[in-house]
Simulated assay, not measured.
Amino acid sequence: MADFLKSYAVAEVGNLRRDKVGLRNKLQKMRDLRGEDAQEIFDLEYSIDIRAAHQEASDARVEYLMDLLDQAYGADKNPARIPAYKNPDDMRIPSGDREGEVVTMSDHIYLSKFAEVFSTQFASKWKHAKSWKDFLHDKISY
Rank of each mutant, 00 (worst) to 15 (best):
R98W: 09
Q121Y: 04
A57H: 05
A52I: 05
I140F: 05
E45F: 03
R34H: 12
G22E: 09
L16M: 08
A123M: 06
Y8K: 12
E56F: 06
H128Q: 10
Y46W: 09
P94S: 07
D134M: 04
D37I: 15
P94D: 10
L65E: 14
V21P: 02
A60F: 04
M105Y: 03
A123V: 02
N78Y: 07
A123E: 08
Q55P: 00
N25L: 10
L23E: 09
M66V: 14
S47M: 07
R17V: 03
E56C: 05
D76Q: 15
H128V: 13
M91Y: 14
Q55H: 09
S95H: 02
R61N: 07
D138L: 02
S106N: 13
L44A: 05
D70R: 04
S124T: 12
F135C: 03
K20Q: 10
N78R: 05
Y73W: 15
D134A: 12
K20Y: 08
K139D: 13
E40K: 15
Y73V: 04
R92V: 06
M105E: 08
Y8I: 02
D138P: 13
I140N: 10
I93R: 10
V102S: 02
S119P: 00
R17L: 04
Y46I: 02
S112K: 06
D89F: 07
Y73I: 06
F4H: 09
S124I: 01
H54W: 07
D138K: 13
M1R: 11
S112H: 06
A72T: 08
K77D: 15
